[in-house]
Computed example of a mutant assay.
Amino acid sequence: MTGDRKPQRSAHRVLACLLATLVTSPLALASNLQSESSIRRAAERFIADRNPWRDHEHRIEAGRLDSRSRLPRCAGAVKAFLPSRAQIKRRTTVGVRCEQGASWTVYLPVNITAYAKALVAIRPLPAGTVLGPNDVKSVKREVSAMGYGYISSLNQHGGYRVSRAIAQGAVISPNMVESAVMIKRGQSVRILARSGAVGVTMSGVATSKASLGERITVKNVNSGRVVEGIVRSGETVEIIL
């Protein structure tokens, strides 16, 4: 009988060792850790809900965590947030924290890549050029990387005039152009008649179109008289008496 117990005890010890090995195996340990994919998804969803380029073709991708990270599994859903004073840009650092069952916070970069059609100069454009179809073409570009913005259509703001020379192949940004038409024909305007330091304002209607600083004819609504003045803003025409 004694001889039978020793093999049984040995078998029990072997079984106990096997169970201990299973409990501490990488697979078992991994089940107690927060998955990296869940953290990245939380960060990506957070940015997607606030994406300034959501109306464009875009892609959002969170960066990887440090390979040495071992974060205990969160008992509830992890929460993403923006660090203090941070703004959502092309590349944004997003925090993800656990507040239930464990307490940890990690930070990871989230990149937004957005594409849209932008106007590109097909030839050198000197200052003063009024942009037309033969001057530009529409090209798909990564607009999220354009810090100065872009223009998508010649029909915006009544057209554009080049305010500084533009090189061939350059994406045309708003700071390179000015509105070609500041006041349109038939538009209601404010007529400012000035004589020295004295000025009088009247209501008028533009009988032609013009850009900032150009001469334009306007009709005085009260008198019916048509006079000529200079465009000072999108609604003001100044007449020097």
Results as ranks from 00 to 15, higher is better:
residue 134 N to K: 12
residue 132 G to S: 08
residue 121 A to C: 03
residue 140 K to D: 13
residue 122 I to Y: 02
residue 110 V to M: 03
residue 109 P to C: 04
residue 118 A to Y: 09
residue 120 V to C: 03
residue 131 L to I: 06
residue 103 S to V: 11
residue 111 N to E: 13
residue 96 V to M: 12
residue 152 S to G: 15
residue 140 K to N: 13
residue 140 K to L: 14
residue 142 E to S: 04
residue 114 A to M: 03
residue 96 V to L: 08
residue 128 G to N: 13
residue 121 A to V: 01
residue 127 A to F: 01
residue 105 T to K: 11
residue 95 G to V: 10
residue 129 T to R: 12
residue 96 V to I: 10
residue 145 A to M: 09
residue 140 K to H: 10
residue 102 A to Q: 12
residue 117 K to D: 13
residue 142 E to D: 06
residue 119 L to V: 05
residue 151 I to Q: 08
residue 118 A to N: 05
residue 112 I to P: 03
residue 119 L to E: 02
residue 98 C to S: 08
residue 107 Y to L: 11
residue 101 G to K: 01
residue 123 R to W: 00
residue 100 Q to A: 15
residue 150 Y to M: 06
residue 104 W to F: 10
residue 128 G to M: 12
residue 110 V to E: 03
residue 143 V to E: 09
residue 99 E to F: 12
residue 127 A to Q: 06
residue 112 I to N: 02
residue 100 Q to T: 14
residue 134 N to W: 05
residue 110 V to T: 03
residue 138 S to P: 05
residue 135 D to W: 00
residue 100 Q to K: 14
residue 143 V to M: 11
residue 92 T to H: 00
residue 134 N to I: 09
residue 140 K to P: 05
residue 152 S to I: 00
residue 114 A to D: 01
residue 118 A to S: 11
residue 111 N to F: 07
residue 138 S to R: 11
residue 102 A to Y: 11
residue 125 L to H: 04
residue 116 A to G: 06
residue 120 V to E: 12
residue 132 G to A: 08
residue 117 K to Y: 11
residue 126 P to F: 06
residue 123 R to P: 00
residue 151 I to H: 10
residue 144 S to R: 07
residue 109 P to W: 01
residue 93 T to Y: 00
residue 150 Y to W: 15
residue 112 I to A: 03
residue 149 G to A: 07
residue 136 V to N: 02
residue 101 G to A: 03
residue 104 W to D: 08
residue 131 L to S: 04
residue 97 R to C: 15
residue 108 L to T: 05
residue 119 L to G: 05
residue 148 Y to W: 06
residue 99 E to M: 14
residue 143 V to N: 09
residue 128 G to D: 14
residue 107 Y to I: 01
residue 119 L to R: 07
residue 137 K to Q: 13
residue 150 Y to S: 11
residue 138 S to F: 08
residue 131 L to E: 05
residue 149 G to T: 07
residue 92 T to V: 07
residue 104 W to K: 09
residue 145 A to E: 12
residue 132 G to H: 02
residue 133 P to D: 11
residue 152 S to T: 15
residue 92 T to W: 00
residue 133 P to V: 09
residue 151 I to A: 13
residue 114 A to L: 03
residue 135 D to F: 05
residue 120 V to D: 02
residue 100 Q to F: 10
residue 99 E to H: 13
residue 128 G to P: 13
residue 120 V to Y: 04
residue 100 Q to P: 01
residue 105 T to R: 15
residue 121 A to I: 04
residue 152 S to F: 11
residue 97 R to K: 15
residue 137 K to C: 06
residue 92 T to C: 03
residue 138 S to D: 07
residue 141 R to H: 10
residue 110 V to S: 02
residue 107 Y to N: 11
residue 114 A to C: 07
residue 147 G to C: 00
residue 141 R to D: 03
residue 116 A to I: 01
residue 101 G to H: 06
residue 149 G to D: 08
residue 97 R to P: 12
residue 146 M to W: 11
residue 138 S to N: 10
residue 144 S to M: 09
residue 109 P to D: 01
residue 122 I to S: 04
residue 135 D to A: 07
residue 104 W to E: 09
